[in-house]
Lab assay of single mutants.
Amino acid sequence: RRVTVRKADAGGLGISIKGGRENKMPILISKIFKGLAADQTEALFVGDAILSVNGEDLSSATHDEAVQALKKTGKEVVLEVKYMK
């Protein structure tokens, strides 16, 4: 599913991630910080795999590559996510 997140002037997306190619895992949302941008969408969940950020494929990204992709986003971020059981 596709989720658009609008960041506030102060603060980032409000998520922590884990996983990555070096761990043989997808990039997973490991924490959502209450009240910040990702939480306010009410459409992102701990355990979601982030498949892409603004069209940039993260399916084979390392953890560091995913962190950089998320950091360089502007005010509006489009995440392609899939819930992983």
Rank of each mutant, 00 (worst) to 15 (best):
R1I: 03
R1T: 02
R1K: 04
R1E: 02
R2G: 00
R2A: 06
V3Q: 01
V3K: 02
V3H: 02
T4H: 09
T4E: 08
T4L: 13
T4D: 05
T4N: 06
V5K: 02
R6L: 13
R6K: 14
R6H: 15
K7W: 08
K7D: 10
K7V: 13
K7H: 12
K7Q: 11
K7T: 15
K7N: 14
A8R: 11
A8Q: 14
A8G: 14
A8W: 09
A8E: 12
D9H: 14
D9S: 14
D9A: 15
D9T: 14
D9V: 13
A10Y: 11
A10L: 12
A10R: 13
A10H: 15
A10Q: 13
A10G: 14
A10N: 13
G11M: 14
G11N: 13
G12E: 15
G12Q: 12
G12I: 09
G12D: 14
G14F: 00
G14L: 01
I15F: 15
I15C: 05
I15V: 06
S16K: 14
S16R: 12
S16F: 08
S16H: 11
S16T: 12
S16L: 13
S16Q: 15
S16W: 09
I17D: 01
I17V: 09
I17F: 05
I17K: 01
K18C: 15
K18W: 13
K18Y: 12
K18H: 12
G19T: 01
G19Q: 03
G19S: 02
G19A: 02
G20T: 00
G20I: 01
G20F: 00
G20A: 02
G20K: 00
R21Q: 09
R21F: 11
R21S: 13
R21T: 08
R21L: 08
E22S: 04
E22C: 05
E22N: 07
E22H: 00
N23D: 10
N23E: 13
N23K: 14
K24M: 08
K24H: 13
K24E: 10
K24S: 12
M25V: 04
M25H: 06
M25W: 01
P26E: 02
P26W: 00
P26D: 01
I27C: 03
I27N: 04
I27S: 00
I27H: 05
L28D: 05
L28N: 00
L28S: 08
L28K: 06
L28C: 10
I29C: 01
I29Q: 04
I29L: 02
S30V: 05
S30I: 03
S30A: 12
S30E: 13
K31G: 08
K31I: 00
I32N: 02
I32E: 04
I32K: 04
I32L: 07
F33T: 15
F33G: 10
F33S: 14
K34D: 10
K34P: 15
G35T: 07
G35Y: 10
G35S: 06
G35M: 01
L36R: 12
L36M: 14
L36Y: 10
L36I: 01
A37C: 07
A37E: 08
A38F: 00
A38E: 05
A38C: 09
A38P: 04
D39E: 09
D39Y: 09
D39N: 05
D39H: 08
D39I: 05
Q40V: 08
Q40K: 15
Q40N: 10
Q40G: 08
Q40F: 01
T41N: 08
E42A: 13
E42N: 15
E42V: 03
A43N: 13
A43S: 14
A43L: 09
A43H: 07
A43G: 13
A43Y: 06
F45T: 10
F45D: 08
F45K: 12
V46A: 07
V46K: 06
V46H: 04
G47E: 05
G47K: 00
G47A: 04
G47P: 00
G47T: 00
G47R: 03
G47Y: 06
G47S: 01
D48L: 00
D48Q: 04
D48M: 02
D48R: 03
D48A: 03
I50D: 04
I50H: 04
I50T: 04
I50N: 06
L51W: 05
S52R: 10
S52P: 03
S52A: 11
S52N: 08
S52W: 01
S52T: 09
V53D: 00
V53T: 03
V53P: 04
V53H: 00
V53A: 07
N54I: 00
N54G: 05
N54V: 02
N54Q: 06
G55S: 06
G55F: 00
G55D: 08
G55E: 08
G55P: 01
E56A: 11
E56N: 15
E56H: 13
E56M: 12
E56L: 12
E56V: 14
D57G: 11
L58F: 08
L58H: 02
L58T: 06
L58G: 04
S59I: 06
S59N: 09
S59P: 02
S59M: 08
S59A: 09
S60D: 15
S60K: 12
S60C: 12
S60Y: 14
S60W: 09
S60M: 13
S60I: 08
A61W: 02
A61T: 07
A61Q: 02
T62Q: 03
H63L: 11
H63P: 01
H63N: 10
D64W: 12
D64E: 13
D64I: 12
D64G: 11
E65Y: 06
E65H: 08
E65T: 07
A66Q: 04
A66K: 02
V67S: 09
V67R: 09
V67E: 11
V67M: 12
Q68S: 12
Q68N: 12
Q68M: 11
Q68G: 08
Q68H: 11
A69R: 09
L70C: 04
L70V: 05
L70F: 11
K71L: 10
K71F: 09
K71Y: 10
K72C: 12
K72Q: 14
T73W: 07
T73H: 09
T73Q: 11
T73P: 11
T73K: 07
T73N: 07
G74N: 09
G74C: 09
G74I: 04
G74F: 05
K75M: 09
V77S: 07
V77D: 02
V77Y: 05
V77N: 05
V78A: 15
L79Q: 06
L79H: 01
L79E: 06
E80L: 07
E80T: 10
E80H: 08
E80N: 08
E80R: 07
E80V: 10
E80F: 06
E80Y: 08
V81H: 04
V81G: 05
V81W: 00
K82G: 08
K82M: 12
Y83C: 15
Y83G: 15
M84V: 11
K85Y: 12
K85E: 14
K85S: 15
K85M: 13
K85F: 15
